[in-house]
Amino acid sequence: MTAARPLIGALALLVLAAPLPATPALADTAPWSAPATTQRVEEAKVFRSGDADLSGTLYLPKGGKALAAVVVTHAAGSPSRASPLYRHLIEMLPAMGMAVFVYDRRGSGASGGDLKTSDYALLADDAVAAVRMLKTDPRIDPGRVGVWGLSQGGWLALLAATRSPEVAFVVSISAPVVTPDVQMMFRSANALKVQGYSQVDIDQMLATRKAVDDYMRGTSDKAEAQRRIDAAKVQPWFPLTYMGETVRDRDVSRWRKEIEFDPLPSLETVKVPALVLYGAADPVVPVAISVERLATITPRRPNLKVAVIAGADHGMQTTVSPKDQMDPARADMAAPDAAEYFAVLASWLTAKGLAAR
Rank of each mutant, 00 (worst) to 15 (best):
D137I: 01
T73R: 06
A274C: 15
G279K: 07
F261M: 01
L240F: 14
D262V: 01
L58Q: 11
A52V: 09
Q152M: 14
P24A: 02
V320G: 00
E42G: 14
A223N: 07
L156H: 02
T246Y: 06
G97K: 06
L156N: 06
Q195F: 05
V344Q: 15
V72G: 00
W348Y: 15
R254W: 08
L67E: 05
S151F: 07
P21C: 05
D125F: 04
G112Q: 10
D213Y: 15
A3K: 10
F101G: 04
T298D: 04
E340W: 00
E245S: 14
A189K: 15
P6T: 09
R105A: 08
T37F: 02
P142Y: 14
A343K: 04
L60D: 00
G315T: 11
E258S: 02
V247Y: 11
A25H: 13
A189R: 15
G97F: 04
Q152N: 02
R139S: 12
L85D: 03
A280N: 01
P263E: 13
V102H: 06
D181M: 14
G50I: 13
F186I: 10
R187N: 14
S118A: 15
R5G: 05
W148D: 01
D126S: 07
E166R: 08
Q325F: 03
I202S: 00
G154E: 04
E91D: 15
T38Y: 04
P286F: 09
A10D: 00
H314V: 00
Y197D: 10
G50E: 04
R106N: 13
I289D: 14
A69E: 04
A3F: 06
A189V: 12
T2W: 05
T37K: 13
V72P: 01
D53K: 05
A334P: 00
L158W: 11
A76V: 14
V247P: 06
A121T: 08
S198V: 09
A66V: 05
Y120P: 01
E340Q: 03
R301Q: 12
V284Q: 15
